[in-house]
Nucleic acid binder design. Structure first.
Length: 418
RNA sequence: GCGGAAUUGGUGAAGUGGUUAACACGCCGGAUUGUGGCUCCGGUAUGCGUGGGUUCGAUCCCCACAUUUCGCCCCA
């Protein structure tokens, strides 16, 4: 038997209902907030992700699906959504007018990692990006949008962690202080952190292995190594969040796994137990240098992404998803009645009535069961004797009342009673 | 990438080195000769993740692999 690749999964039955519901919700909500939908390729040139996500990040160094096409082009299955959106923004010269631009995407991403609860190799991310403004209102809009979205979806006990990475200069300033502080303790850090010390010292703050060590507990606070302007900016962001009733918690050790972030970064964490280790359902931040780094003009941006699989996991607890009930189910026994069922179904569907019937000619009993499984509200019973007199029997599946309708009035009757 | 656990039908699962792999749900058919949902009866895994090995014989023991899952790492 051929099976699905490791870390991939089929979305069927109840999961499919959930996914459809979430997607409908996302589309509605983004439209409501005036975001435009954008779809970019599932794979891009390999260089794009190396330049954006960062050469030193785990995502790029060990988790990408890289391949060469038949013409030896080096390509990578997208591990996240922002890089493609920014590439498209530049390539389509969206910066030429109408800024800031509010975009949202929703699609599958690919990372070669160990699968587990809430983590797959093929997974789905939905995210928004606002390109073209450095105003704190943008930071606040993005964070509160994400927060409200999850609230509306039924999440409770949401926790927003937020931090300010500051400007490039701020970070250089801080990195220097951090390295000076860490230098004498280098031997007490884990092997990964020894490497990070050279490649990406900020990541050491986020290291789970060394978190309990006294070295990290007394580490210099990034918020104290920033310019007055950066500090003021962050203060404003927090102030607005309070106005908007977003519960947040400043976490000076929050740094993201992608290199392109600066200034505001945040994560949204759900305490739903089913999520286990996958409790971070959304994350994002500001990336003011990325557009320029990719060859565009200097355009400040901010965005976030969230994992649909994690939302789906938590949704079991949050609400009971049921299939939409069918308006009608047509039952029949013989061939003549079956022909009638087929044409009647078409006529009803054209009139906007959802209807189904058994195509395989199973027993009447089975057809009744099937009607119940589909939560059909009205049953249309085709009876040869009735048909000869030009009648059709309609049964209300709730009250069990039956009524005989003139065959040529059946559509009108169903439409006005459906 | 590292360490632990699991893998029996459509589903939940019991079970044993040796004839027909329990039970329940579901599904199909019948009693009900064209009106169901209750009840009763019958049917429903040539098969116990895949490939090897041990054995007269393996779903059961051993090995490898795959997949899933938990923890680490990382992340959404």
């Amino acid at each position: 038997m051929i099976t699905k690749p490791k870390g991939c999964y089929d979305v069927i039955d109840k999961e499919a209902l959930k996914l459809n519901k979430i997607n409908r919700y996302i589309n509605y909500y983004c439209d409501f907030y005036n975001y435009d939908f954008i779809r970019t390729p599932l794979f891009e040139s390999r260089e794009l992700f190396h330049r954006t996500v960062g050469e030193s990040t785990d995502i790029v160094t060990k988790e990408t699906y890289d391949f060469k096409d038949r013409n030896d082009r080096e390509l990578t299955l997208r591990p996240e959504g922002t890089a493609g959106v920014v590439r498209s923004f530049i390539e389509n010269k969206m910066y030429g007018s109408n800024l800031p631009r509010k975009l949202y995407y929703n699609g599958t991403m690919y990372r070669y990692e160990r699968p587990g609860n809430g983590r797959n190799r093929e997974f789905t991310q939905f995210g928004v990006e606002i390109l073209g403004s450095n105003d704190v209102a943008v930071d606040v809009e993005v964070i509160s949008f994400a927060y409200r979205l999850f609230e509306e979806l039924g999440f409770q006990d949401l926790n927003v962690k937020i931090n300010n990475l500051g400007s490039k200069e701020d970070r250089e300033h801080y990195k220097k202080a951090l390295k000076e502080y860490l230098q004498p303790h280098l031997n007490n850090l884990c092997d990964d952190c020894k490497v990070r010390f050279e490649t990406n010292p900020l990541r050491i703050l986020d290291c789970k292995v060394d978190q309990d060590s006294s070295v990290l507990k007394n580490v210099p606070n990034i918020l104290e190594y920033q310019s007055e302007e950066s500090k003021e900016r962050f203060k404003k962001v927090l102030e607005y969040l309070r106005f908007l009733d977003v519960d947040y918690e400043v976490d000076a050790k929050l740094v993201r796994g992608l290199d392109y972030y600066d200034y505001t970064v945040f994560e949204i964490i759900s305490s739903e137990e089913v999520l286990g280790n996958a409790s971070t359902i959304a994350a994002g931040g500001r990336y003011n240098d990325l557009v320029e780094k990719l060859g565009g003009p200097s355009i400040p941006c901010m965005g976030f992404a969230c994992g649909l699989e994690r939302i789906m996991l938590a949704m079991d607890k949050i609400e009971n998803i049921e299939k939409r009930p069918l308006d009608c189910y047509i039952l029949y026994v013989n061939e003549e009645e079956k022909m009638k069922a087929i044409t009647l179904a078409q006529d009803l569907r054209c009139s906007g009535i959802s209807v189904d019937y058994d195509v395989t000619g199973r027993s009447l009993k089975s057809q009744f069961k099937e009607a119940d499984r589909n939560h059909a509200q009205l049953l249309i019973l085709l009876n040869s004797e009735d048909l000869q007199h030009g009648w059709i029997t309609v049964k209300d599946n709730l009250t069990k009342e039956e009524i005989k309708i003139e065959e040529n009035e059946i559509i009108d009757y169903i439409v006005s009673n459906g």
